[in-house]
Design a protein around this nucleic acid. Structure first.
Length: 896
DNA sequence: CCGCAAATATTTTTT
DNA sequence: ATATTTGCGG
């Protein structure tokens, strides 16, 4: 077979010479199915890129025959880049992409075969939520009890498992016809029927709007491949080698997609004399993954995909990579020790030939602010005294909300930083508004976006006008836009409404014409939309200081469009919208090679796949990490632990772990006890700069009760009395049961009331540095540093190096509010803390097997009762909502 | 129909 | 604490 002249020829030795035996074997493996079990830092990406090069040069494949799938855009960009340096610029033209963008590409080409017209819209989570809310109000069900989020989560589950709305309808609501009004959901409490009906209606409206949600990208592609044999055949013969990264994070739909794309079940047989996968028969599949790094189960990821790989793909070979090239032995020991606490996992130990290195540094701060303060100054010290580059340092946390205090600390210490993720640029209101115009221009059937902009900016078309048009459109089987166009035919229409409607229709028609003429210049279209819609006008006239930054965000949007235009040879408006929908964090990480000069802040999830010489793992507290919502459930706790494993293994040389004894969460500060994960790290590995927070030391020496008693208290209920310095403990029986001399008992983490207590204006508050006007000034200086970068461009990935999400937008929106403080306390009495409350239920009235009803979990069965007097615990199985341990005294339950 | 003030929920993690 | 939703008066 002829070799693609664009592929830089590499002698085999150059591809495997510097690899260890397992890596080399994985690169060269000649066979239809290969699973690479790649531990953290084992050179996974290197093996993957080398294997692709190997396939090209040794198996004689063409670049176009390869499909490499990653999970995130970042990973795709990195792989593309590394491929590029290995085999040359031809890599830019290869299919190296995420599941989602690969699917978009396929659907853009052949989606019309399954009813997706070109220019279909991709709804993001917010769009989907709006849609469900609309459905909720049409069907009149209780949004309080069944939140759109819950419903969407359920719909997402259905989709991830390729369960169609039709089969659910047949089972639960055979009489319902999507698109009809007046259906009454049967008996209240028949949740399945409600889900089925909403799901079906949701699908129906998506179809009417010529729109898809994120999950649909996968699902509809599977549908396309399954129902259109010729399309399937095209891809079977096109992609002869499929490589999937982070295979442990694939869900069922993605698994099926891979199978369909590869034609595993198509029944073709390879020609026996082919050098590699040949031209017919199933494509050769390589998957790479590590079940210990599966952290997306909440999104439907199914570990059994990787566990069952050898069963699923005949003649599969598994190669394990366990030598770690990233971290010191100390860091690996910590990671191994933590992950070993997960049950039912295949034992696996990472090892390294690098030495022990420095110990892990630990620090226990009094408050989140002081934690940030210490981190910032430690970073400064590392930079100034040890010459560590800022860009070699990353600060990681469990949830985005934690970034706030860390940012403040870094700003205060004048440490430059960049924030990855968080509130996304494209999710900002003004940006979404502008994009909604573009979306509505491209796809007039898109009712969600059309309705969104109907009265943005204000043009006198409120809820009333919207519902008149909707009703008219529904009655006549028209789209919302067609309803607008025919506004003058609507009965009961007043001139007061008709005139602005007509103007709106004209506006959109004009914009559409303009867009059609300038399809290749999205930036022109953006400019026109901003100007003619009045979006820009409204904001620049406003006196609200926030609107100033909104204007800047809009102008950034225009620059992004311009940049896209320049970097994309066949730029179109639709293409631009696609990038905005799929490339969530546009401020990509800079190249490894280039020194951004900034510390990186990100969530642990975002950090997966990355590495830094110095890593700060922050917020190591029960309730923060592991997250309070994941502590009750064993499988979710395991996932948290894998997340900890991921975090620890990001560090190459020096790992820091920090925690705060008091953390403000939703306005109130709560006392946090140390994360159980800290206990899982062998003590000898950690060098504590400060082992206990001030509060904790005070308590230890308080005289009344030993440390164990305190911890035992915390243990069981994760809760503190409001007057914690006092002596009363809710009156009764707190036997001085000295459980567990290790600081936490094993079985008793979490209770439903975790974190509900608070400690008002305590003395710790005054210890915290105030971020007042000083912080505000510095915010602006940091914003200029954040924006001052040059315009690098790498690859065709069209990522502006300028990061839209900080700079003026986020910084200034935040400043000016820092110092505001309510003059008077709330007039309402504070709700009693959970320890004060008492719903007067008696544990003796509850027995195993009894039925109870919970305000939010619904009907449940009692599994266990524990009589502890005032602090009695009841364990209840709520079916699909799971098994919960509730403190009887505070639980909103009723015995049935 | 709009604007303002008050009430209310929100905090997992991402394509 | 903050963002979004609801209620009321103009």
């Amino acid at each position: 077979m002829q070799q693609d002249p664009d592929v830089i020829a590499r002698p085999p030795e150059a591809l495997i010479g510097d690899l260890n035996p397992q890596q080399a074997e994985a690169v060269q493996y000649h066979g239809p199915a290969l699973l690479i079990g790649a531990g953290a830092g084992s050179g996974k990406t290197r093996v993957l890129t080398r294997r692709i090069a190997w396939i090209l040069t040794q198996f004689g494949a063409w670049p176009s025959q390869i499909l490499a799938i990653t999970f995130t855009n970042k990973a795709a960009a990195e792989m593309r880049e590394r491929l590029s340096s290995l085999i040359g610029p031809v890599a830019e033209r290869m299919w190296v992409s995420t599941f989602h963008s690969a699917c978009v590409r396929i659907l853009r080409r052949d989606g019309d075969r399954i009813g997706l017209k070109s220019g279909f819209t991709i709804y993001d989570t917010a769009d989907c939520e709006r849609l469900v809310k609309l459905i909720a109000s049409d069907f009149n069900f209780d949004v309080k009890r069944y939140t759109p989020r819950q419903i969407l989560a359920r719909i997402s589950d259905y989709k991830n498992n390729l369960t169609g709305a039709k089969e659910l309808l047949a089972q639960y609501a055979p009489d319902f016809r999507p698109g009809t009004r007046g259906y009454h959901i049967g008996r209240i409490g028949n949740v399945e029927e409600l889900y089925a009906v909403v799901y079906a209606e949701y699908e129906h409206r998506l179809a009417l709007a010529n729109a898809v949600d994120f999950d649909d990208l996968i699902v509809r592609t599977v549908e396309l491949l399954r129902t259109q044999p010729d399309v399937a055949a095209y891809y079977h013969h096109k992609f002869r080698y499929i490589l999937v990264d982070e295979y442990q994070d694939t869900n069922h739909a993605q698994y099926v997609l891979i199978r369909e794309l590869a034609g595993v079940d198509a029944g073709e047989h390879p020609s026996p004399d082919a050098r590699g996968a040949g031209r017919v028969g199933p494509a050769w599949i390589t998957v790479v993954g590590d079940s210990d790094q599966s952290i997306y189960a909440f999104r439907g990821a199914d570990i059994s995909n990787i566990q069952d790989f050898e069963k699923d793909f005949p003649n599969a070979r598994t190669i394990m990579l366990e030598q770690n090239y990233r971290s010191t032995q100390t860091i690996l020991d910590a990671a191994n020790a933590v992950i070993a606490h997960n049950e039912g996992r295949k034992p696996k130990k990472l090892w390294t030939s690098a030495g022990k290195g420095v110990p892990i540094t630990g620090y226990a701060a009094d408050t989140a602010q002081l934690e940030a303060h210490w981190i910032a100054h430690e970073i400064k010290r590392l930079h100034e005294e040890e010459g560590v580059r800022y860009s070699d340092i990353a600060v990681m946390y469990r949830a985005n909300a934690q970034s706030r205090s860390l940012e403040e600390g870094l700003i205060q210490a004048h440490v430059p930083y960049q924030l990855i993720g968080g509130t996304k640029f494209y999710e900002r209101r003004e940006v979404k508004d502008a994009l909604a115009y573009l979306q509505a221009i491209v796809n007039p059937a898109d009712a969600i976006n059309m309705r969104r902009i109907l009265n943005v900016p204000k043009r006198g078309l409120g809820a009333r006008a919207e519902s008149i048009v909707t009703m008219y459109a529904d009655e006549h089987g028209l789209t919302f836009w067609e309803g607008v166009e025919q506004a003058d035919r609507i009965e009961g229409m007043t001139t007061r409404t008709l005139n602005p409607l007509k103007r709106f229709a004209d506006l959109m028609t004009g914009l559409r014409a303009f867009a059609a003429e300038h399809d290749g210049q999205p930036s022109q279209v953006v400019a026109r939309v901003l100007r003619e819609s009045g979006l820009l006008d409204e904001l620049s006239k406003s006196t609200d200081p926030q609107d100033q930054s909104r204007v800047e965000n809009l102008s950034q949007l225009q620059s992004v469009a311009a940049e896209y235009e320049q970097n994309t040879p066949d730029a179109t408006l639709v293409g631009f919208l696609e990038t905005t929908a799929l490339v969530a964090d546009f401020d990509q990480l800079p190249d490894e090679s280039e020194d951004s000069g900034k510390v990186t802040l990100m969530t642990l999830h975002t950090a997966k796949g990355l590495e830094y010489p110095v890593v700060f793992l922050t917020g190591m507290e029960q309730g923060t990490f592991p997250h309070s919502r994941a502590m009750e459930d064993a499988s979710e706790l395991s996932e948290e632990r894998r997340l900890a494993y991921v975090g620890i293994t990001r560090a190459k040389r020096h790992l820091y772990i920090t925690r705060a004894a008091v953390r403000a969460q939703w306005g109130r500060s709560s006392e946090m006890m140390p994360s159980q994960f800290l206990d899982e790290i062998p003590e000898g590995l950690i060098d504590w700069k400060r082992k206990e927070a001030g509060v904790e030391r005070m308590r230890a020496g308080w005289g009344r009760g030993s440390d164990d008693d305190w911890n035992a208290t915390l243990d069981e209920f994760g809760d503190w009395d409001d007057d914690s310095m006092g002596t009363t403990y809710g009156g009764s029986s707190y036997g001085s049961s000295s459980h567990g001399s290790s600081s936490y008992g094993s079985a008793s983490y979490g209770s439903s009331s975790y974190g509900s207590s608070s400690r008002s204006g305590s003395s710790y508050g005054s210890q915290a540095p105030r971020f007042g006007s000083a912080a505000r000034e510095r915010t602006s200086s940091s914003s200029s540093s954040g924006n001052g970068g040059a315009h690098f461009t790498y690859g065709t990935s069209a990522s502006p190096s300028r990061s839209p999400r900080f700079g003026s937008s986020s910084a200034s929106s935040r400043s000016g509010k820092v110092t505001t403080r309510k003059a008077a306390p709330k007039p309402h009495a504070k709700p009693a803390s959970s320890l004060d409350r008492d719903n007067r239920l008696d544990i003796n009235d509850f027995h195993v097997g009894d039925k109870v009803s919970h305000d939010s979990f619904g009907l449940g069965t009692v599994l266990e009762t524990q009589d502890k007097g005032r602090n009695s615990i009841i364990t209840v199985d709520f079916g699909s909502d799971g098994v919960k341990r509730l403190m009887l005294r505070v639980a909103p339950i009723e015995k049935l």
